[in-house]
Amino acid sequence: MPATAADIEIHRPYLLRYARLHLANPAQAEDVVQETLLAALEGGERYSGRSTLRTWLTGILKHKIIDQIRRASREQPLVDDERSEAEAVDALFAADGHWREFPQDWDNPETALDNGRFWKAFELCLQRLPARTAQVFRMREVMELPTEDICKALDISATNCWVMLHRARLVLRECLQLTWFDDAPKTK
């Protein structure tokens, strides 16, 4: 079942948004999407119809994004200020390792998923992660890559990767606490 150019073109906005989640440079995002659509057209007969067309296209796009990230990382790796990053996590805990602030209960957080304003807050929190940490987190959670693939692409150790993911999750959690859940009754 070959996919036609029109079938494929419908998915361009989704693919572009997906690419932009990983590549800060809009021109690079456009490029990888363009390459993906071309590859899909040229190899159109390989689309088996077993997955949805969007899933199939996203699979091609993922490889192109990883290649791009790998190239960029070799040329000029993103660098976070490791010390201030470690401090960001340390600040959440007392000296004895207990939570400094009692984590609040997020009462039915799933209800926020239908709220457009929640997604605004979520996006802002994602954007506030330091560049390298965000890159690792997005490869893990958006692309759902196993840690070993992330380590290979960025040439970092698994331990380093796990520490960065921990940091990203705690900082994101804290940001949502402050910018959404503390205010939830008001913003609903």
């Binding site: 989640l21 207990h98 984590p103 209960d105 997020w106 957080p109 979520f122 949502l176």
Partner: peptide
């Protein structure tokens, strides 16, 4: 109880990122 709470929140974060990814542009 604190870490049980945070544990649930980390699971929610994972769900939220994937939902965010799949939002229609």
């Amino acid at each position: 109880v604190r870490c049980r709470r945070v544990g649930r929140q980390l699971e929610f974060l994972r769900l939220a990122v994937r939902r965010f990814r799949d939002l229609d542009p």
